[in-house]
Amino acid sequence: MNALVIYALLLKATCTSFSGLASLPLIREDFVVKRHALTDQQLNTAVFAGRAGPGPNGIYVVSVGYFAGGLPGAAAGLLAVITPAFLILPMMRWLKGRTESARVRSAIRGVILGTAGLLLAASLPLARDAVVGSLTLGIVVATFLILSFTKVDSAWVMFAAALVGLMARG
């Protein structure tokens, strides 16, 4: 895929989401469902690659770009992560004080709740692809419980799950 197209599609996703993984529904729609540039398994791997290393969770967008267009695609992904961040500079100047508006805060919370619904809809096909037996189902449930109710770093959970996969094979 052309790097400019990758940048435009990823930018559309990052510009309309308000946290790292919230861009995933739109990215899945554009890259997996519409253009078939990635499979669900590759999208899963991209999310893993973003979480396995240090830095922001949204960095998985770079891996999506890499899958879709090699190194130029990865560079397009990086730019799509960075570009919306600079919107904060004019916002700091003009919106200072307005974040206290109850209506603006309520609208933002509406977006967060809508994003949760979208994220669930995007997660189900990924889960369907990942669950291939009782072991992987157990990993899904255990990961959900650990990350929802403890402060354990997600990177450790990812590595532990990979290790469980290895041990199950051995």
């Binding site: 398994q41 899963n44 990924l126 990993i139 990961t143 959900f144 990350l147 990812m158 990979a162 996969g165």
Partner: peptide
Amino acid sequence: GAAAAVAGMMF
């Protein structure tokens, strides 16, 4: 194993 963990993380 990691892919299953990603699904759990999404939930």
